[in-house]
């Protein structure tokens, strides 16, 4: 797939994105540009449309109106080969979604072998490097059921990375984890950010937003309410809804 991207162009460009589920309006006009290597943290109350926006980006949901461009390619256009786009956009889910009938290694190598037509040896090599990177090389022959939640999520990250994406989407990836397992996943994501990966992270982990995020977006009721530097927004939220949200969150942090 050719990318129509030069160094100044956005990795992801969202233009007037609307999404409706029946009568419910999930996204009510999103305009957003994500530049390469940005780590965009998306926060907001539940129902604000954060996950929906992420899922529209890689085509798991189809937009009701508006356009999404990934590296210049219009994802929302009917003629676009969505499978090719998804090779460039990796996604990690709240419920991990590892393939239970395959070993960790096979989980990671399945897509490279079937989609990129890699040989098993090539794929295994890449997979082992990635599993090593997330600290789970010794678990490569284990089945997902034998791994803890944190371990499974790290495998899921390695699996998404195996396709060599240019963007990684994280949809509340630590929300289903026991608290003591959260940091190992966030550390992995931090390493990824430091390597320059473009990331969009929907999360409730404010510590991560402050420490690793380069941009914070607060969403509410399907719209972007505030958008800027994480630390600035935390210390000085401009919009009343943002203030309200943070006061509720930070009151028990």
């Amino acid at each position: 797939m050719e990318t129509n991207i030069d160094s100044g162009e956005a990795m992801i460009r969202i233009v007037d994105l609307h999404k409706r589920f029946g009568d419910f309006v999930a996204l009510n006009g999103i305009d957003l540009d994500v530049m390469p290597s940005q780590v965009v943290v998306v926060v907001g109350p539940s129902g604000s449309g954060k996950s929906t926006m992420l899922r529209c980006i890689n085509g798991l949901e189809s937009a009701t109106r508006g356009n999404i461009f990934i590296e210049g390619i219009d994802v929302t256009h009917k003629a676009t080969d969505i499978n090719k786009v998804r090779e460039k956009v990796g996604m990690v889910f709240q419920s991990f979604n590892l393939f239970p009938h395959l070993t960790t290694l096979k989980n990671v190598t399945l897509a490279p072998i079937k989609v990129k037509k890699m040989s098993a040896d090539e794929a295994n090599e890449i997979a082992l490097v990635l599993l090593d990177k997330v600290g789970l090389k010794d678990k490569s022959d284990a089945y997902p059921a034998h791994l803890s939640g944190g371990q499974q999520q790290r495998v899921a990250i390695a699996r998404a990375l195996a396709m060599g994406p240019d963007v990684m989407l994280f949809d509340e990836v630590t929300s289903a984890l026991d608290p003591e397992l959260v940091s190992e996943v966030l550390d992995t994501m931090k390493d990824l950010a430091l390597e320059g990966m473009t990331m969009m992270v929907v999360t409730h982990e404010m510590g991560f937003a402050k420490e690793v995020g380069t941009r914070l977006i607060f969403m509410d009721e399907g719209m972007v309410v505030e958008d800027g530097d994480p630390t600035q927004i935390f210390n000085n939220p401009k919009h009343p809804r943002t203030q309200d949200f943070f006061s509720k969150i930070l009151s028990h942090m």
Partner: peptide
């Protein structure tokens, strides 16, 4: 679980 299909499609599989 539909997450299986979603994860698989997200990796670029048809």
């Amino acid at each position: 679980h539909k997450g299986q299909m979603e994860a698989s499609r997200s990796l670029g599989m048809t």
